[in-house]
Structures are given as structure tokens and as C-alpha cells.
Amino acid sequence: MNIAYWIVAGLLAVFYFYAGTLKVIRTRGQLRPMMAWVDRIPLPALRTLGTVEILGATGLILPPLTGIAPSLAPASAIGFLLLQTGAVAVHLTGEDRRIALNVGLIATAALTIWLATGL
């Protein structure tokens, strides 16, 4: 199960690290083609969301890798599950109804939680 955790958590961490970095460094105009909802939230909230995603990705990898506070890994995955639940709500209340990626990320985060509790 350890190998499965590293594969699933690694993929999830890479996705969130990339997405978070984009939200932190790019302008609204650069983000708009891939994230139609960026105009609906304030820019500081968007930057904060990106920072939270980067920190969560770090929380999936570093604690189990170092053995320091490994309980942070499932906490990070729970955070991503909650984040994506909120993202589905944002998509459904706006004009962007594409939630397939969000549902896939919810399932991946749930799997990561289950695998992390077995570490």
C-alpha cells in the first residue's frame, strides 16, 4: 500500500503544486482561458488559494518522506477533498458547469486519505 500512496499522492501533489503556482504568479488574463471562474473572486483570494494548494501539495509529500508529523499527509488530502467540494459549488453556481476534473480530484483525494491512514 505504501507504493500506491506514493503514486497517488505524488500525482495529486504535482497537480496541485502546478495549479497553485499558476494561481500565485499569473494574471487573471492569463488564467481566464483555463479557469473561467477567476473573475468571480478577488485577486488576493485567488493568490491565497494558490498558496494553500502549494502548501497542501507539500503536506502530502514531506511529512511521510521525513517521518516528521506524518499525520499531516491525510490532513492535506482532507483539505484537498474539501477544497474540491467547494470548487464544485463555485462551478455549479457560475456559468462554468465543467466539474469532471473536480470530481476526479475528489476521488483521488479520497483515495489518498485512505492510503495515508495505512502508512
Results as ranks from 00 to 15, higher is better:
1 M>P: 04
2 N>L: 13
3 I>S: 10
3 I>D: 11
7 I>D: 03
8 V>L: 14
10 G>F: 05
11 L>P: 02
11 L>D: 02
11 L>E: 01
12 L>A: 12
14 V>T: 08
15 F>A: 13
15 F>I: 13
16 Y>V: 10
16 Y>T: 05
17 F>R: 00
17 F>G: 09
17 F>T: 04
18 Y>N: 08
18 Y>I: 09
22 L>G: 02
23 K>M: 08
24 V>S: 01
25 I>S: 08
26 R>V: 00
26 R>D: 06
27 T>Y: 05
28 R>K: 13
28 R>Y: 03
28 R>E: 11
29 G>Q: 12
30 Q>C: 05
30 Q>F: 05
32 R>V: 03
33 P>E: 09
34 M>D: 12
35 M>E: 14
35 M>Y: 11
35 M>T: 06
36 A>N: 13
36 A>G: 15
36 A>L: 14
37 W>D: 13
37 W>Y: 12
38 V>L: 08
38 V>P: 01
39 D>H: 10
39 D>Y: 06
39 D>E: 15
41 I>L: 13
42 P>F: 09
43 L>E: 15
43 L>H: 02
43 L>F: 01
44 P>F: 02
44 P>M: 10
44 P>L: 12
45 A>I: 08
45 A>V: 12
46 L>E: 11
47 R>W: 05
47 R>V: 11
50 G>C: 11
50 G>L: 04
52 V>Y: 08
52 V>R: 06
53 E>W: 01
53 E>G: 00
53 E>F: 01
54 I>Y: 03
54 I>C: 12
55 L>Y: 03
57 A>L: 05
58 T>G: 12
60 L>R: 03
64 P>Q: 09
65 L>D: 06
65 L>A: 15
66 T>A: 07
66 T>E: 10
67 G>I: 05
67 G>L: 11
68 I>M: 12
68 I>V: 15
69 A>P: 01
69 A>I: 07
69 A>K: 07
69 A>M: 14
70 P>K: 02
72 L>I: 15
72 L>Y: 07
73 A>D: 08
73 A>R: 11
75 A>W: 11
76 S>D: 12
77 A>H: 03
80 F>Y: 13
81 L>Q: 02
83 L>W: 12
83 L>A: 11
84 Q>F: 15
85 T>D: 00
85 T>C: 11
86 G>Q: 07
87 A>K: 06
87 A>I: 03
88 V>R: 07
88 V>H: 04
89 A>D: 03
89 A>P: 00
90 V>I: 13
90 V>A: 14
91 H>D: 10
92 L>G: 08
93 T>G: 00
93 T>F: 02
93 T>M: 11
94 G>P: 01
95 E>C: 02
96 D>V: 09
96 D>F: 14
96 D>S: 15
97 R>M: 03
97 R>Y: 05
98 R>M: 07
99 I>A: 04
99 I>E: 04
100 A>K: 10
101 L>H: 13
103 V>E: 03
103 V>N: 02
105 L>N: 13
106 I>S: 05
106 I>P: 00
108 T>H: 01
108 T>A: 15
109 A>G: 06
109 A>C: 04
109 A>R: 06
109 A>E: 08
110 A>E: 04
112 T>R: 06
113 I>E: 06
115 L>C: 02
115 L>E: 09
115 L>V: 02
116 A>W: 05
117 T>N: 13
117 T>G: 03
119 L>G: 01
119 L>F: 14
